[in-house]
């Protein structure tokens, strides 16, 4: 067994443990419905985390994603309510998200600025622009939302009289995870991202167009965050420019728990999915349990982070010790 997959194995183990514990203590926990809901409810975190995974693998960080999601929801809500077709609105906002990310990436690579500060500025900027569009929660009223999206849910099983369906949000998540995996493992872009994060100087000497790749990485993250914003509108059916403050940290945590190295060069989209599911199942466990308090989730997540970071640190030390 190759030791570099160790973090991934631990993640899978922790996820299995959590689900197992859930199944042991609560009947119905490991039901089709609960698992599907786990995917559906955490879809937007997952989609964001896919982009974040690429950014972190490249050795950067993107703090702007939560604001971009909020901006997206309010943009869609406002434009749709003003008569634009949702699909047009989504296409428009996806392009905006891509551009926004690319501009951040340009500042980072062209001026060689710290990603932390540039995306911090991006975070404030996107949040502010969202507020300018509308600073209250706006419900989206359009048949596309009330009918079409619901109709896209795929029925998969019959439990008693109820039909279990995979909601469109979960489908989106699966689509992005598959797409992200493909991009990370089967495209030159993906391999170049790994190369930059692992050793930027070497990558440059080996002919990787470092600056271009960085711009694309942040553009991808902007795109994913916008897509996550679209996913949010599917099940919230509303837009709110003040929502999801702090979500970027969930996305980062999911990536780290999923085995992505915060210093860059290592990471798996599949791991990130597991990270998202771990975060989600901790939430569900607490909901199921009822009396267990929310703060244990935070402490537990912090402990998990510590565990994963320590394992990575030890692995790294061992490599350096050679």
């Amino acid at each position: 067994m190759n030791s570099r997959y160790l973090p991934l194995v631990i993640t899978a183990f922790v996820l299995a443990l959590l689900l197992g514990a859930g199944g042991f203590f609560f009947t119905n926990f490991i039901s089709f419905r609960v698992i599907i809901n786990l995917f559906g409810d955490n879809a937007f975190v997952g989609v964001t985390a896919v982009g974040m995974t690429f950014v972190i693998i490249s050795g950067g960080i993107d703090l702007s994603v939560a604001s971009v999601i909020a901006f997206t929801t309010i943009f869609i809500a406002q434009t749709v309510n003003n008569g634009m077709h949702p699909l047009v609105s989504m296409a428009l906002v996806l392009i905006l998200g891509l551009l926004f990310g690319a501009i951040q990436g340009w500042f980072i690579s062209y001026f060689n600025l710290p990603p932390f500060l540039v995306t911090l500025a991006g975070m404030f900027f996107a949040r502010g622009v969202g507020f300018i569009i509308n600073d209250i929660s706006v419900a989206i009223k359009h048949p596309f939302y009330s009918e079409t999206i619901r109709g896209l849910a795929i029925p998969v099983a019959q439990v008693g009289r109820a039909v279990v369906r995979i909601p469109f949000t979960a489908q989106c998540l699966i689509f992005f995870i598959l797409g992200g995996t493909l991009l990370a493992a089967y495209s030159r872009f993906g391999r170049n991202v790994y190369a930059i994060g692992s050793n930027e100087t070497s990558a440059r000497l080996m002919g990787v167009p470092v600056d271009q790749i960085k711009i694309w990485v942040y553009a991808l993250s902007g795109f994913c965050a916008t897509a996550a914003g679209c996913v949010v509108t599917f099940y919230m059916q509303s837009g709110n420019s003040s929502s999801f403050v702090g979500l970027e940290m969930d996305a980062i945590a999911a990536a780290v728990i999923g085995g992505t190295l915060l210093t860059g060069g290592v990471g798996w989209v599949a791991g990130t999915l597991m990270g998202v599911l771990i975060l989600g199942s901790i939430q569900s466990l607490i909901t199921f349990q009822g009396s267990l308090n929310n703060w244990w989730a935070k402490i537990f997540i912090g402990t998990l982070l510590f565990l994963f970071i320590s394992v990575q640190q030890l692995l790294n030390r061992r490599l350096k010790g050679r």
């Binding site: 495209s187 391999r191 790994y194 190369a195 692992s198 070497s202 060069g265 490599l319």
Partner: peptide
Amino acid sequence: NLIPHLTVAENICLGREDRLAGVI
């Protein structure tokens, strides 16, 4: 000057991978 976290094969072919319709 190679990429420490990639495999031997990937390092040999980085940037020049064979592709079919963009898929390595």
